[in-house]
Design a protein around this nucleic acid. Structure first.
Lengths: 354, 354
DNA sequence: TCCCTTGCCGAAACCGGTTTCGGCGCGAAT
DNA sequence: ATTCGCGCCGAAACCGGTTTCGGCAAGGGA
């Protein structure tokens, strides 16, 4: 079923039908309707490749997933893909997905670009220094960043407002009596790390508190490192009463060292993290965390990229989305006010450790 | 950089260059080489859409992921995609991914077919009764099943040999002294369920054992149901000493009811499951399970689909791959031989339940 | 010498759309 | 009665490839 078939059915030329279906102004309303009905009735849909050749657009958004990073598991990949797919489908676009070892990503992008398998790209997990940005900018291919970058000049971007989440985290912990609050960051290659720490510091400042440098750690992006760092923090002469993790998977490592020191997470030690990893729902108590709506993020990114391909200026294509706080058990550790008053900087909950 | 540019560079016509690059027999070896070198040097790559319009193939394999089933999380989706992508890239193909609510999948397929965004489809998680099969067969679109189907006539398919895994499971448990072995199946809509149960029965038969119908349960495909079923089994007058789960996520529900009855998983109760879910590595003790190499499965499926699109008969496109046993802690519960001899069908490990 | 292969390439049609250009027919303005 | 403008559509070029067809030149056999 081609456009010529539709045209023959109507006694028109294919050019006219094409213009009718694409809402050209030099087509009478009657003809436009007849064409639309005939296309519908005959089940005609334009072949993507055929229009791509003339319009230069294949109406596909590209997504290259970099495999390798073994600690970077993706529990939300399906949701993210669903969001992207929905956003694309809403405009009649589709999704071209490829994977590449982190080193060889360049060739993968290049092939997709050269063969015109995608009109632009969504860049997930952008790093502060990200070779993909230079590559795409150099090839003059539209793209949208998902995450921060050292310079966003000339870039469209989308991000979750992790800074604000952490700012609110400070208030939450302050309201529950905490003053000695530790921060455990993730991988320093990504912008989220600085953003979340900065947000926490800003929030603490609003509470007339400061982030104690001795209570700050970095590079914890998995459970094992999370355990080590938690142990380190709890063994300080003045250990924190609350630990804020930049990454859920690191926070999952808080239990063992805490229990080994006679502390119950959620009662003696408050833990708040970020990501909304589903595993956090199965801990005891469940992990309080800031969850990200990956589906909606995908939809927004798809929409932004399509706008970008269609010519929207990058300045109009920048947005953030708030994370949502899941106020679960690990955040309910409260420092009683009376304790606060008489305490003088000493740990208030030294428990059953030897 | 189009083929005309390459032709101009060489003083040839684009038709000649096209034939040279596509190994037509009426091109001299010298010209073929010159064309190849020039294309390489100029960085020419044929635009996919342009060749699709004439050849009828866009060199893309389609994958539609059905969202909805909230219990069907996909911890291996990234690996599977990587495998598919690799297999596709090896032949110069790409991957078109879409998602759809399970009910509306039909329209999604139809759109991809009509717009020629894919030359064929990989059908993940095929069910015994699967409307996708009829749809694609009716539209005469090539596809490869990943999983069993009520009838594989006219279908290319690939599957993991879960039956053989379960057959071996029977031997493993028998060798460790177990005779009262329970089977907890997953969703009956899928072929794997019957395959795994059948494999277990076959293996038991080889050990001169039979699967006791009172120790068989069905429909456990998540942790909550796994807990309920485990509790039920352990409360039987003659409880099993080993439970075989068709699905890891159901097996994760074995711990709570076991501990509530004073039984330690891996010591008093053997558990063997299937899937290789990463969460199983973090239980105490870690879950013994049959793991599937999703990456390689994807690569094979991609290769098979491409062959199918290129005209290979379905009879040549059928294969299975073995699962690999991860002999971890939960399988090490052993029934001592002496106990076996003097016991008379009574539970040997009734523990601290009231 | 003539004819018939054979190897090799140019020319052009073709795929299924989009887009440009030109012209017909009609009503309104001069 | 022209002329002009405008609405509307046909005709044809065009996009970047693939594929078919025809023909030229060299070589071989009679």
């Amino acid at each position: 079923m081609t456009i010529s078939d539709v045209a023959a059915e109507l006694g028109l030329t294919k050019g006219t039908v094409s213009r009718a279906l694409n809402d050209y102004p030099d087509i009478s309303e009657g003809t436009r309707l007849r064409a639309r009905r005939a296309a519908e009735r005959l089940g005609y849909r334009p072949m993507g490749s055929a229009q791509a050749i003339r319009t230069g657009r294949c109406r596909a958004i590209g997504l290259v997933l970099e495999t390798d990073e073994h600690d970077a598991h993706r529990p939300f990949l399906d949701l993210f893909l669903a969001g992207l797919s929905d956003g694309a489908a809403a405009e009649g676009w589709t999704l071209t997905v490829a994977t590449a070892p982190v080193g060889a990503a360049r060739e993968t992008y290049q092939r997709l670009i050269d063969e015109r398998k995608a009109d632009g790209f969504v860049l997930p997990r952008t790093k502060l220094e990200d070779p993909r940005v230079e590559l795409l900018r150099g090839s003059d291919v539209p793209f949208v960043l998902f995450g921060g970058h050292k310079t966003t000049e000339g870039c469209a971007w989308f991000d979750i407002d992790g800074a604000d989440a952490m700012r609110q985290t400070a208030h939450i912990l302050k309201d529950r009596g905490h003053t000695r609050i530790a921060y455990v960051g993730g991988s320093p290659d990504y912008a989220y790390n600085g953003q979340r720490q900065g947000g926490l510091e800003a929030g603490l400042a609003e509470c007339d508190l400061a982030l104690d440098p001795t209570l700050v750690r970095h590079g914890a992006n998995n459970r094992a490192i999370g355990e080590a760092v938690t142990a380190e923090l709890l063994d300080l002469p003045e250990p924190p009463t609350a630990i804020v993790f930049a990454v859920d998977r690191a926070a999952l490592g808080a239990w063992r060292p805490a229990e080994a020191r006679g502390l119950a997470v959620g009662r003696d030690l408050a833990v708040i993290a970020y990501d909304g990893d589903p595993e956090g729902a199965f801990t005891e108590p469940p992990l309080a965390t800031w969850s990200v709506d990956w589906g909606q993020a995908g939809t927004i990114l798809a929409r932004m990229l399509i706008q970008r391909v269609l010519g929207a200026p990058v300045e109009d294509l920048r947005a953030t989305m708030p994370a949502q706080f899941l106020d679960r058990g690990t955040a309910s550790a409260v420092i009683p006010p009376d304790l606060l008053e008489r305490e003088a900087g000493k740990p208030s909950h030294k428990g059953g450790d030897s």
